[in-house]
Computed example of a mutant assay.
Amino acid sequence: MDRKYRISKVFNNNVILVTDKNSNQELVLVGKGIGFGKKDGKKVILSESDIEKSFIAYDEKTKTEYFQLISQMNSNVLGVSEEIIALAEENLGRLNSHIHIALTDHIGFALDRIKMGMEISNPFIYEIKALYSEEFRVGLMAAEIIKDRLDVEISESEIGFITLHFHSARQNKKVNETLKDTKLIKDIIELIENELSVTIDNGDLIYTRLINHLRLSIQRLDEKKYIENPLLDSIKEQFKYSFAVAGKIGEYIKKEKNVDVPDDELGYLAFHIERINETKKLMKRNVTESNKK
């Protein structure tokens, strides 16, 4: 079925901003070659086969902000950002519409920094990769689009920041909230390492299990969802030290997020801490026995 559109802006060969002549609705259209040879202000007729994806890039609250961005941002960067967002929604599901502003602005700023030789390292890259693996996978795909369309290679640190935007839009959260939770998890891991005098290898299965548990635990606290721990009494009795360490973490979370962490939640955390402690003891025994030989 063919539809009539008026082109508001050609972002690149694959992305255009249009007004649907029937509904008078402004849309971003993504499709291979859809913008090639097109001009701003011209009327076009497009068929469904021409359009891979169409969406509204803003709501009424953010309309002014989006059009300010369009007036200030390089069209190629706008087009690439919209291609990336379309790809992200294909892989991750519906994203909060504010990503069209937040991610586009971030990518534009990141590209400017890279051109000036001012790349920023990402101190949470290991946590981001482990916590948001699906989003990071799409971030790698986004890096390929940027390289292919703009001939700019972005670092793993930058991919990590793009990943945060994907996760935030997926959870309807602000990026700084996601970043705070990521930092909180990193701090908790360091606290556990200090308490147990151990270094947790971010490539180990123990690290992955711990970090994913902490992510879900913090999510439950944010959503005020409380779980029951049928083994709580046994954990308190058998894993006294680990539960005490979990209690310190609970106090830290309370200080950072102003929420009380229930004992049931601390019990599950203590179980993970105990596993790390036992692994450390086993490694020490193996080293001692090896030295004796």
Rank of each mutant, 00 (worst) to 15 (best):
D222M: 10
E237T: 12
Y241W: 00
F55N: 07
N24L: 12
Y5T: 04
I45W: 02
E228S: 08
S54E: 15
L205S: 15
I7Y: 04
N91K: 15
A86Y: 04
F239Q: 09
K254G: 00
V30E: 06
K43E: 15
E289D: 10
S121V: 10
K281W: 00
E89S: 12
K42Y: 07
E83H: 04
V15N: 01
P123L: 10
V261S: 02
L282M: 10
I16D: 06
G267F: 07
S133G: 02
I84T: 05
P230C: 00
E65F: 05
T19F: 01
E251S: 15
F243R: 04
I192G: 09
G203F: 12
L266K: 11
A270P: 05
A110V: 11
K115E: 14
Q219G: 05
I114D: 01
D263G: 02
K292Y: 04
L232A: 07
A88K: 06
L210H: 14
F243Q: 06
Y207P: 11
E228P: 00
V175P: 09
H98L: 13
N91F: 06
E134S: 15
P262R: 09
R170C: 11
F55Q: 07
G35T: 04
R215Q: 13
F166S: 10
L179D: 09
R170L: 15
T288K: 05
I146D: 05
D112K: 13
T19E: 10
I128K: 10
E228D: 01
D264C: 08
F161C: 03
A102W: 15
S8V: 13
G93W: 12
I99A: 13
N24M: 07
K183R: 14
D59R: 14
K186A: 14
L95Q: 12
S290Q: 03
P230M: 02
K183L: 14
I159L: 06
A244D: 14
G33Q: 05
R137Q: 13
E223Y: 00
A142E: 08
I253P: 09
K39I: 04
I192R: 08
S168P: 11
E135R: 04
